[in-house]
Write a protein that binds this DNA or RNA. Structure first.
Length: 565
RNA sequence: GCACUCGUAGCUCAGCUGGAUAGAGCACCCGCCUUCUAAGCGGGCGGUCUCAGGUUCGAAUCCUGACGGGUGUACCA
């Protein structure tokens, strides 16, 4: 339920009744339990405008609040804080509605927004490495989240399948043997070998350059080899997607090369829109306040990635009809996207009603704060990272010895991959972050395993109980009330995460919820002898709802839960 | 040089549109398993929120400057 906006509405109504004319202001979640559940701090801000004492304003607002059973108590504190307590009977009823609703009382938007999420975007010339992880995981979370909230999501995997390096690779494929599929088994090695030959063998280098021209000219044989190469490379990516439980499929692929035919038109339309300027022989778009242009067409007539990006933007708005486009791309591209967005708007490729958003994320650094590399200076392959995660999880599970032998592999996969994804998603995406195997695969504190563990313990209670639950949800105990409050905030957390494209809002919420539940559960036995039936039923319902919220929240992150751990 | 961005506990990070005593996890110390899974819970230790000004009733949060780190800066993607 949209708890916060419901409270805001009551405050707003009180404003009207009290004759206060002011911009709507929002309540905030109370910082401490003794300040209630929510607090409204607007009275102080209004004091100056209205020329009144803030406490007096607060009093006038409080007197007019008519929350229809939702708010049980109000208090004016300090200079004019309004503290609000949510009624526990009201909460109990709402919690029960959530429990009996498959979507946890979260209604899909009446008017879904057609949203393009551009993410993952691997380069077909190389194997996926750890640098692709953040885009892939953040983007997939956003796609799942937006979908759940009722938006119409179109995933776009803007794969890099065009450019000069493909000439080299095709030439190498042509000379290295007949069977393309087996020789491409290790793409990384293939690329390195090709590069070595390119640098050392002038005849081969010339051949490679020739192949670029032939490929771009549409030569059938070259296209066939190129297509084989892309198929194999994409196959590798899809293997990583499957391992990661990422929802991208082949139908989401919209390759760079697919925009080729649109590029000339993009340049022409920019020219006729008089946005284009020639500078040093190149066709450029200049932005106000910056002397570094966005180059659309090279002096030699060639197109660049800015051209492709503009074509893609156009396709997304004009053909797909997107109203929000989220680019999940690392922070180094911030300047580029600023220019592309600006050019696209001025060219009229996107209207005022389209929201362009660069969902940027920071770089991955090693422990000494340098860009993350392997010991020999190479990039860490994504698949190696994932294998490592699973094998570490497996070792811990075997060590613990609570799983059936047949289950170990499956559980290790869910736990290990979950840990990697959660570690990426739980930090603010905008900051750089320190990559550390131990931290990433740690299972303590704010990690996926902590949530999965809590979930499994709740399932254990229900296995033991095995009967139908009934009765009211009672929130007598303070911890019970806080848990109930937290459960009701789920939708607010999801909405905030979606509004700002910040997955870590979800993890923070889930961690806080789970911590509360763990405390509650330690102090308030559920099935123990001597617990009154009424209380037991109520606590079982809270436990059930907690489990469902954890499962749904993790589902937004593409992380699975387990009934036993 | 210019632009953007970051600077919170020993380490890794939260801190939502400025709000009441700045929060977690790890590490370290102490306690809790004959009782619903101890991958847990409780307690302790630890911060002049880089620094200096400014705006405000009120600043980790907004503005300016300094210092320090990172990134970007014309025909690669």
């Amino acid at each position: 339920m949209k708890l916060k906006s419901e409270i805001n509405q009551h405050i707003q109504e009180a404003f009207v009744k009290a004759g206060i004319e002011a911009e709507p202001m929002s309540v905030t979640e109370a910082g401490k339990p003794e300040f209630g559940d929510y607090q409204f701090n607007g009275a102080m801000a209004l004091a100056k405008v209205l020329g009144k004492n803030p406490r007096q304003i607060a009093t006038e607002i409080v007197e007019k609040i008519d929350a229809d059973g939702m708010i049980s108590r109000t208090e004016i504190a300090g200079p004019g804080f309004i503290n609000l307590w949510i009624d526990s009977v009201w909460m109990g009823e709402k919690l029960q509605e959530m429990l009996h609703d498959g979507r946890l009382s979260i209604l899909p938007k009446a008017q879904g927004v057609k949203t393009v999420v551009d993410y993952s975007s691997p380069n077909m010339a190389k194997q996926m490495h750890v640098g692709h992880l953040r885009s892939t995981i953040i983007g997939d979370t956003l796609a799942r989240l937006f979908t759940f909230l009722g938006d119409e999501v179109i995933r776009q995997n803007h794969i890099g399948d065009w450019g000069t390096q493909f000439g080299m690779l095709i030439a190498y494929l042509e000379t290295s043997g007949e069977d393309a599929y087996s020789s491409l088994g290790d793409l990384e090695q293939f690329y390195k070998d090709a590069k070595v030959k390119f640098d050392s063998d002038p005849v081969f280098a010339d051949m490679a350059r020739e192949y670029v021209v032939k490929l771009q000219g549409g030569d059938a044989h070259c296209r066939t080899l190129w297509q084989q190469f892309i198929d194999v490379s994409l196959g590798h990516c899809e293997e990583a997607y499957r391992t990661l439980d990422v929802t991208l499929t082949r139908k989401d692929v919209r390759a760079e090369s697919s925009y080729n035919e649109m590029l000339t038109a993009v340049v022409e339309d920019l020219r006729s829109g008089t946005i284009l300027q020639e500078s040093d022989g190149a066709q450029c778009v200049f932005m106000e306040g910056s002397d570094v242009p966005l180059i659309i067409q090279k002096r030699d007539g060639g197109f660049l990635y800015a051209t492709t990006d503009l074509a893609a933007i156009r396709y997304r708005t004009e053909v797909l009809g997107a109203k929000r486009i989220s680019y999940v791309v690392d922070a180094r591209q911030a300047g580029h996207f600023k220019q592309v967005f600006d050019a696209a708007r001025r060219a009229g490729f996107v209207g005022e009603d389209v929201w362009l958003e660069h969902v940027s994320f920071g770089m991955m650094l090693d422990k000494s704060g340098r860009p993350f590399k392997t010991r020999d200076g190479g990039t860490v392959k994504l698949i190696d990272l994932l294998d490592e995660a699973v094998s570490r999880a497996k070792a811990m599970i075997e060590d613990r010895g609570t799983q059936e032998a047949a289950e170990v592999e499956k559980v290790a996969r869910i736990v290990g991959i979950g840990a990697v994804k959660y570690a990426e998603l739980s930090v603010n995406r905008e900051s750089n972050y320190i990559f550390d195997w131990d931290k990433m695969l740690s299972f303590e504190g704010n990690t996926s395993l902590y949530l999965q563990y809590a979930y499994a313990r709740i399932q254990s209670i229900f296995r033991k109980y095995g009967e139908k639950i009934d009765g009211d949800i009672l929130l007598g105990d303070p911890l019970e009330a806080r848990l109930g409050m937290m459960l009701l905030r789920f939708e607010d957390a999801l909405n905030a995460a979606a509004r700002e494209s910040m997955p870590h809002y979800i993890t923070s919420y889930l961690y806080e919820l789970t911590t509360l539940f763990m405390k509650f559960y330690e102090q308030n036995p559920i099935l123990k002898e001597g617990i009154p039936a009424e209380l037991r039923e109520s606590r079982l319902q809270l436990a059930s709802l907690t489990a469902r919220t954890i499962r749904k929240g993790l589902d937004m992150l593409g992380i699975q839960v387990l009934d036993r751990l």
